[in-house]
């Protein structure tokens, strides 16, 4: 793969965002908000940091990525398609009968490691993969993207304990901290006042960054490589609906596509700025 600089990565992030909008508009359903907030993180992982090869998706030494917040399927599917895991033509079938792309992240899709959708489970699956990596003495790393509404699930905290117990320094969780969940703002639904301190107290290495700054995302993942014993938890502060003015910080667009042709055109236009 060619080496991308930050200018390239920013461009790719917006390509992914446009595809997200196209997919949910075509499907007339789906979750744009959390896909747009995660687009920069996904770009850095798939185009810069992860050791992956679309031609060898089963390579036992590949890095693993788990989209624990499985409703951000448009973001992951768009990323995998742009990265070359499957043809772009698959994307128009998203959420439709007899297409390749299930509504939530589905393992049958090339490049997808595990099916997700019901929240709170992906981090635990990542713990299992990281344990296997240690057992088999392989050097791969396991990345898990979790949502900030998602960490209200008890399963997440159980898995946080397990990763600490087994010193899974090959496990990197990234929190897409966009502060919005389905019913509203996380501070109203279930306030968690100091997530970095909470996670650190469970024995993890915690790094807090701006989740839309590609340089900061790269630095955080590089720093995680240096962790000798602890798993790493990256708190990435993001904006839900990032890049589309009327979607930004609006809980409505957690799970709704552009409401009209006008909204659709506006979103695509805003995401095409500067190109």
């Amino acid at each position: 793969m060619e080496a991308y600089d930050v200018v390239d990565l920013k461009r790719i992030s917006n390509v992914i965002r446009r595809k997200v909008i196209e997919m949910v508009y075509s499907a007339k359903s789906g979750h744009p908000g959390g896909s747009l907030s995660a687009a920069d993180i996904l770009t850095v992982l798939y185009f810069k940091e992860m050791n992956i090869d679309p031609l060898h998706p089963d390579d036992p030494d590949r890095d693993r990525f788990i989209m624990s917040k499985g409703h951000a399927s448009p973001g992951l599917y768009a990323t995998l398609s742009v990265r070359g895991f499957f043809p772009e033509s698959f994307l128009s079938g998203f959420r439709k009968l007899n297409s390749k792309l299930e509504g939530h992240v589905h393992r049958g899709v090339p490049g997808v490691e595990v099916s997700t959708g019901s929240l709170g489970q992906g981090l635990g699956v990542g713990v299992g993969m990281a344990l296997a990596g240690k057992l088999d003495q392989r050097s791969y790393r396991v990345f898990v993207l979790v949502g900030d509404g998602e960490i209200e699930e008890g399963n997440i905290w159980e898995s946080i304990m397990a990763a600490n117990k087994y010193h899974l320094n090959n496990l990197i969780a990234i929190l897409d901290r966009n502060r919005i969940q389905l019913d509203g703002f996380t501070r109203d639904i279930m306030p968690l006042n100091n997530i970095p301190d909470m996670i650190a107290s469970f024995g993890w290495n915690v790094i807090e960054i701006d989740g839309h700054d590609h340089n900061q995302i790269i630095s955080a993942i590089e720093e995680a490589k240096e962790s000798l014993e602890k798993p790493t938890f990256v708190v990435a502060n993001t904006v839900k609906g990032k890049g589309v003015s009327y979607m930004e910080n609006n809980p409505k667009y957690h799970g709704s596509p552009p409401a009209s042709e006008e909204e659709y055109r506006l979103a695509i236009s805003e995401l095409s700025g500067g190109e």
Partner: peptide, 11 residues
């Protein structure tokens, strides 16, 4: 969930 991750890794 860890059981699933281990199985996905060939165990």
């Amino acid at each position: 969930t860890a059981a699933a991750g281990l199985a996905l890794s060939g165990k």
